[in-house]
């Protein structure tokens, strides 16, 4: 199988590492070769963060380059706009419509762009945008936004619901399992 590329982008602290861990666990059960590349350290502190997940018969590079991503899962709308150049021509963006102002916007040195969703679609990019934060809150915690997004991404993969649920059970603490399962299903069925 040709290598598939999934980028998970967002703002440091939003829980993208758990999302990549979940995806990695799931892919391992299918016997794929996998590489997951993460960001630790200074960039994590509220900055723009990106995680690369690659799987296939044989994966060499740990990172995804411009024009290579099959999917970009974005935890925040501006971050979706930031990374579109990394998407393949026929790739797809799954995005949370939540907006988090970066510091240059907060202090008035820059403006948060208007009409991001329209601009992405106008560029001919397949965009699946939805309010993952509300779904996570409905499930019981804003922190489950990562799992709600994975639920939405799951629609484009041929894994069964049971397989996803098992990977969630392997990745989150038991006391938050029900909450996360609910967030996943809300995202998957939204």
């Amino acid at each position: 199988m040709e290598t598939k590329n999934v980028m998970i982008v967002g703002v440091g602290g939003q829980g993208s590492l758990l999302a990549s861990k979940l995806l990695g666990r799931l892919l391992l059960t299918r016997g794929y070769d996998i590489k997951v590349s993460e960001v630790h350290g200074m960039s994590q502190r509220g900055g723009s963060v990106v995680t690369y997940v690659r799987f296939g018969d044989k994966v060499y590079s740990p990172i995804i380059d411009k024009g290579e991503a099959d999917f970009i899962v974005s935890f925040e709308l501006l971050e979706a706009a930031r990374w579109t150049e990394y998407l393949k021509k026929d790739g797809r963006i799954v995005a949370n419509t939540q907006k988090i102002n970066p510091m240059p916007v907060i202090i008035g040195a820059a403006e948060y762009p208007e009409g991001i969703e329209e601009h992405i679609r106008a560029a001919g990019i397949a965009l699946d945008a939805f309010d993952a934060l509300s779904l996570a809150e409905e499930a019981g915690s804003a922190k489950a936004v990562n799992i709600a997004l994975m639920g939405r991404l799951s629609k484009y993969f041929d894994f069964s619901e049971e397989e996803w649920m098992q990977a969630i059970a392997d990745s989150v603490p038991a006391k938050f399992l029900e909450l996360n399962k609910k967030a996943f299903l809300l995202g998957r069925n939204a």
Binding site: E68, P102, E111, I125
Partner: peptide, 15 residues
Amino acid sequence: PQGTVAEENVPQRPP
């Protein structure tokens, strides 16, 4: 490989 830039002025998000 080339991708598409959809938004010209994306503000930086420093840590």
